[in-house]
């Protein structure tokens, strides 16, 4: 990796801050996804901004109130809001309303190619490429998170007491329940589809080996795990929630009985967001004070400062699909958009 970071010591601004553009956009950054060469960012004032490398971002006023959930789908993004609207916004700014749930919030959205889903209250709604109307998936309690696997044929829906996996069968989607006491939020499949992981209300994450529903409990975090990302070819599941990135190995027999690798120490504060550097064994870690570090998943390597502290919790880190630039956002609406690699301004 050559990010031109080596001679950064002692400077108050990081190299990425020096070569990047900073914005204050006045509303908390709530999400970011990549489509084409855009990084699309959602905000607490209902706006969506399309960032690209050499242009000023263009803005779409999409929702009234907070945008709670965001996912990318082909040339568009899907957004769910406090206003109960589920929208599809294309990269030329066109808005199409897919559904409207009135006063009910849309807490989660997910997509895979042409399949997409959203949740509102206890119900998840699934749209597939071959059907006009959504399939309604009932849940025992409010949906905490949604995620498709890498084939798009399975959708995980988390809630209180476990995760339900809906799998596409010949005629209909069939459900299978993965039970674990407690409230489950963000949910993700491992890239090989063998594991299902959820972040819990308690300071821990829970996993299941899907084949036999063997439980994996990954605990010991000092705070709630709000962010998960799969890193590298091993792969590692990297998590926020501690004062360094906790990286669980999922090669071979998985993390059962193995210790995680811990990288990028943030001192006396916890990580709030983690984002893989695609195709590398490296991860960006955002902290409570707004600082961001980059580290390889290797405890012998030192980490690099990417962004200095702003005083506000990092809520988003996103890398463009062409890996040319990075965007960092926080809960105060500060956004840094910067070329990732040295010598590319």
């Amino acid at each position: 990796m050559n990010l031109g970071l080596k001679d950064n010591q002692g400077s108050s601004k990081t190299k990425l801050e020096e070569r990047g553009t900073e914005y204050n956009l006045k509303a908390p950054v709530t999400g970011a996804v990549t489509i084409n060469n855009f990084i699309v960012v959602s905000f607490g004032d209902g706006k969506v901004r399309f960032f690209s490398q050499n242009n000023e971002p263009f803005v779409v006023q999409a929702h009234k109130g907070v945008i709670l959930s965001l996912a990318g789908i082909e040339d568009s993004v899907l957004t769910g809001g406090e206003d109960g609207r589920f929208l599809k916004i294309s990269d030329n700014g066109n808005i199409k309303e897919i559904a409207n749930f009135g006063t009910q919030w849309i807490d989660a959205v997910a997509s895979y190619k042409m399949n997409y889903a959203c949740s509102s209250g206890r119900k998840a709604y699934l749209w597939t490429e071959d059907k006009e109307t959504a399939l309604t998936l009932d849940n025992p309690s409010t949906v905490g998170g949604l995620s498709f696997d890498e084939t798009g044929n399975r959708l995980a829906v988390s809630s209180y007491g476990g995760v339900t996996v809906w799998e596409k069968g010949n005629r209909r989607w069939k459900s299978s329940r993965f039970v674990w006491k407690g409230s489950h939020g963000k949910v993700t499949f491992s890239p090989d589809g063998k594991y299902l992981i959820s972040a819990m209300q308690e300071n821990e994450i829970h996993g299941w080996r899907i084949r036999d529903k063997t439980d994996l409990t990954m605990s010991g975090y000092p705070s709630k795990v709000k962010s998960l990302t799969w890193v590298g070819s091993t792969p590692y599941l990297v998590t926020s929630g501690a004062n360094e990135a906790i990286c669980w190995p999922f090669d071979g027999k998985g993390p059962l009985g193995r210790k995680p690798i811990c990288v990028a120490n943030g001192g006396n504060q916890n990580a709030t967001f983690v984002q893989a550097l695609p195709d590398e064994n490296a991860v960006f870690i955002g902290f409570h004070d707004g600082s961001v570090l980059l580290s390889e998943i290797d405890e012998t390597k030192k980490s690099y400062p990417i962004r200095s502290q702003t005083g506000y919790e990092v809520s988003v880190i996103s890398i463009s699909s062409d890996k040319k630039y990075i965007l960092i956002g926080d809960i105060k609406g500060n956004v840094l958009c910067s070329p990732l690699w040295a010598g590319e301004l």
């Binding site: 709670l68 919030w105 807490d107 209300q201």
Partner: peptide, 16 residues
Amino acid sequence: VRGDLIRILGGLMKRA
């Protein structure tokens, strides 16, 4: 605890 309150208060704190 009230799970819905955690979710809703979290959402309200994201307002501009």
